[in-house]
Design a protein around this nucleic acid. Structure first.
Lengths: 204, 204, 204, 204
DNA sequence: TATGAATGAGCTTTCATTCAT
DNA sequence: TATGAATGAAAGCTCATTCAT
């Protein structure tokens, strides 16, 4: 059985790959795909440009690495703790916190989203990821409805879509920080008021 | 008195400029800023590359032209007809229709939104445009509230932010068409239900 | 018989040509042949670039115009007044004064001199002009010698060459103004001392 | 201890740099700055144009290399052997020989001199170099005077300026070879006669 | 595994020149 | 005579990629 140290221990090779991916990630966040230069990435990672090509034969391969990195980073916002509606509330907060603390993730996700329009393999990844996200949200909403926390007329599929849409918009810099907060609050209020409709009735 | 024909008649020079902007617009929609090539734009407009530079001294100048074009195209979705809540409903439908009929606009708006993070002059344009949009929506919501079509507790500022956020997300291809429809429907339902809260009360 | 007014009256066409040549002259003085741009010349003369090509079919034709202009400007320094040695002294002073008052002439002459190495037709013009200059100086020196103002051993051919060489160096900006003055003074002193050798003898 | 072979051995990289500078030097001598083309330089050095930019990021950087090369080439004419007046005579002969054997140096120095009018950093280099030259000559003249080889009334500063001016004129092709010889001879004669004035007197 | 050197292909931009009006 | 519009040809420079070591 591997010790914790061993499990998190990275080979030199993995370190290099990660350093390169992290540098590329930073570059994309800062300059977009438009401004991504392998030389800059190599320089930032402290290696020769030829070394970069040793680890990532092509620029596209490097970008794949960034995609995997970014998706993994984003998945962490869905933590299964508490009741369905608590999980939902926590997820919203976690997304907001992530985008606030690491705005580069927003930039990169935005870049990836746009790029997926011209890159079928990236499109597949994004679609699968988004579908999984949507299904998770819908599942939470359904369980909340079953628990009596939402009105039965509530369309969980469309509600999940609205949540995904709203949170998705946050990766664009055209949404200012204060506007993001407002939209977030309205989303929470909306969910609460829907919950209130059912909850408050029995208590009457 | 100028005839309609005369009024819409363009000089040769304006035609060329427009053709170049339209070609650049198409290229950005298709390949993103990453893939925008002046040579391709000139070829698509049927002119020599030097001719492009006769009209637009630099690539950036051409991009400014595209920005103006795209913003103008988007503004057309706010038509002031009917009561506030009708205008609101129409606006939602108009945005959805525009994005469905001309998906290139979505692509380009997405590209511009991302680029605005690294381009202060573009950032200003996007911000002003978004602020105006938000203010318009908020105005409609307020007038609807005053007309008794919305509950008094309704926060028009945050509701407008939620609408902007949802519609904004539609410029990203990661939102599939069916998901966009769902989010739209949920947005309409939410607005209607809010309206219903007040409207139904007198009948009680 | 033409009146003075008539003689100096220029046709519109000649004015245009002259304005273009003057502008080109100024550009060469300022930026060298390296930086000569027909568009700039046209703009400075206040005409369209196509108009420039109406008057001067090619850039080379325009340059020919500049050459003629510059050579004419330089010839004015040889005014036949006074005794040979006075003429000589005056010539030195006139060259110095010209270069001081119109440094552009120095720049352009320098540019032309260098260009003549790659331009046979310009080379011919420069050579002829320089030969004429040399002959004139030699003639003055010979007449001064015959008048007893110079020692008989004096080699007028080589002395003329030294004068031409010294004055020629003044078109280069690597000779600073103060250095030019020093060289001038030494040249004058040398000519005077040579004169003094013969003149002082009778007094012995 | 390094052998002579080792000492003069150049790295591959230095060779390439030198080959590129030499090619650029040749191009400037042949076509002037006006006709300097990086592609031609690269071709003449037998490398790809991108390789040229690997060694010299910009055309200007390449030109700086040429400047250093030319200045170094010129400095070699001041060899400190013999008495002051011998050194002086040798210097004159060395300059004449250099310009005769390698006329490209004359061309390039001429180009650099003119360019210095529009290039402050080059201007500084040229000025410093010329000042050093002038000081060296003046020093030689002073020591010659102190040794009794020149009349005390002799103004060494101005005489040095005259020598510099005359030699400087030789970089211009408007001075033909025979005229250069004549000017040289007159310069030598002038220096000798000045020397003769003092030397011959005691013997009388 | 790592790198310095090299390159093909392509990019934006410039410029003298032409031409229809 | 004069010009706005257009262009072919080329220029300097960039960049992902390769390769010998």
């Amino acid at each position: 059985m591997k010790s914790a140290a061993l499990r998190t221990m990275r080979s030199h090779s993995e370190d290099r790959r990660h350093a390169l991916v992290a540098a590329a990630f930073g570059q994309i966040a800062e300059r977009g795909f438009e401004g991504l230069r392998t030389r800059e990435v190599a320089a930032e990672a402290g290696v020769n440009i030829a070394t970069l090509h040793y680890y990532f034969p092509t620029k596209e391969a490097l970008i794949r690495g960034v995609v995997a990195h970014a998706m993994g980073r984003f998945r962490s916002t869905l933590a299964p703790h508490g009741s369905p509606d608590e999980q939902l509330a926590n997820h919203l907060k976690a997304v907001r916190a992530l985008l606030r603390k690491e705005p580069e993730i927003a930039s990169v996700m935005g870049e990836l989203a746009l790029r997926s329009a011209r890159d079928t393999s990236l499109a597949r990844i994004m679609r699968e990821s988004n579908d999984a996200w949507h299904r998770t949200l819908r599942g939470l909403l359904r369980r909340a409805a079953r628990a009596g926390d939402l009105p039965t007329a509530f369309d969980t599929d469309e509600a999940a879509a609205l949540i995904v849409a709203t949170l998705t918009s946050m990766v664009l810099p055209s949404m200012t920080s204060s506007r993001k907060d407002q939209a977030f609050r309205e989303l929470e209020r909306w969910l609460n008021s829907a919950a209130g409709t059912t909850r408050s009735r029995p208590s009457n």
